Simulated scan of single mutants.
Amino acid sequence: MNVTLVVGSNRHGRFGPVVADWLRGHLEGRADLAVRVVDVAETAALPTTLERTPAATAALAEVTPKLAAADAFVVLTPEYNHSFPAGLKNLIDWHFTEWQAKPVALVSYGGVSGGLRAVEHLRQVFAELHAVTVRDTVSFHRAGDSFDEAGRPKDAAAPDAAAKAMLDQLVWWGQALREARERRPYGG
C-alpha cells in the first residue's frame, strides 16, 4: 500500500524532522507499506491563494503526484497556537480529490497537550475533504524532552505500541477504501 508521510511544520529550528525520522522507521519497517514523504518545508513555494496560476502549478508539480498516488496518509503535525501550522493548512487546501476516500493517520507533538488540539482540528478539515481519519493517534507531550540526542524516544514502549496500533488501522482502512474505489469510483 502506498503511504505518503506529510511532515507538517516549516518553522526554522523545527522539531518535526526528529519525530519524522522515528515515524519513518516505523513506516519503512512494515513490508505492507511503500513510503513517500512530502515535507511542508520543501513546498514553501505553494502560493497562499488558491488561484491556479502558472507559478502555483509549477509548485504543485512535485507534490500533487505524491498525494494522488497515495492509498493512505500519515500527517505529522506540531501544535501552533492550539491548532496546526498554516503551511500544512495551505498544502491540504491546495488539494481536494487527492484526499478523497482515503484514510489519514495523525501523529502530533508539542508541549503539555502533545499536539492533540491540532489533531482535533485536522479531523474536521479532513472530514470536509471526504477523507477518513483513523481513530488511534500517536502524540508526543513535551516532545523535546521525549527524545534522546540520537533522535530516539527515551521510553519507546508506549509510542512504539501506539504507532503499531495506528498503522494497523491505517492499513485496514487503506485496503478497504482502495478496494471500494476500484469497484466504484468515489463521487462524494
Rank of each mutant, 00 (worst) to 15 (best):
T97I: 10
H141T: 14
D145N: 05
R135I: 04
A143M: 04
H121M: 06
E51A: 15
A55K: 09
S9Y: 01
V18K: 01
A163H: 07
D145A: 11
L177W: 03
L122H: 00
G13Q: 06
A150G: 03
A118H: 09
A150F: 01
T133V: 13
A158H: 11
H12G: 09
A131P: 09
S139N: 08
A55D: 14
A56I: 01
A176I: 03
P17E: 01
R152M: 11
A68Q: 13
R14E: 02
D21P: 01
E79K: 06
D71R: 05
A61F: 02
A165L: 15
V138G: 04
P78S: 03
P85I: 04
D93A: 11
V35M: 05
L170R: 03
R178T: 12
T97F: 13
V35C: 14
V7Q: 09
A58H: 06
G16I: 02
E182A: 15
T48H: 15
E62M: 08
K164C: 01
V107G: 10
G25T: 14
Y109L: 10
R152L: 13
S113N: 10
G13H: 06
Q124Y: 08
T57N: 10
H121W: 05
Q169A: 09
F15N: 03
V125G: 10
W94C: 06
P47F: 02
T4L: 05
L67E: 00
G114N: 13
A56P: 02
R183N: 06
D39T: 04
E179Q: 15
Q169K: 01
V35R: 03
S108N: 15
G110D: 08
L46E: 11
R181M: 03
A163R: 13
T137S: 11
V40L: 01
A55C: 04
F147Q: 07
E51L: 14
L50T: 11
E128L: 15
K102W: 12
V37L: 06
L50I: 12
F147S: 03
Y109A: 11
A69V: 00
V75C: 01
H130F: 14
L106D: 11
E42M: 08
D145G: 03
E149V: 12
E28N: 12
T64A: 09
F84N: 04
P85A: 05
A86D: 15
A69F: 01
D168T: 03
A180M: 14
V134R: 04
G16F: 00
E182W: 04
R52H: 15
D32Q: 10
R123N: 06
L167D: 08
G25D: 07
V18T: 12
D148A: 02
H130L: 10
F15H: 07
K154A: 11
T48D: 15
F126T: 02
A176R: 10
P54N: 07
Q169M: 13
V104C: 13
W99A: 14
P85K: 06
E51W: 07
L76W: 05
T4M: 06
V74I: 04
E179A: 15
A34P: 01
W22Q: 02
D32V: 10
G187A: 15
A41H: 09
T53R: 08
G187N: 11
V134Y: 03
D155W: 07
A56L: 13
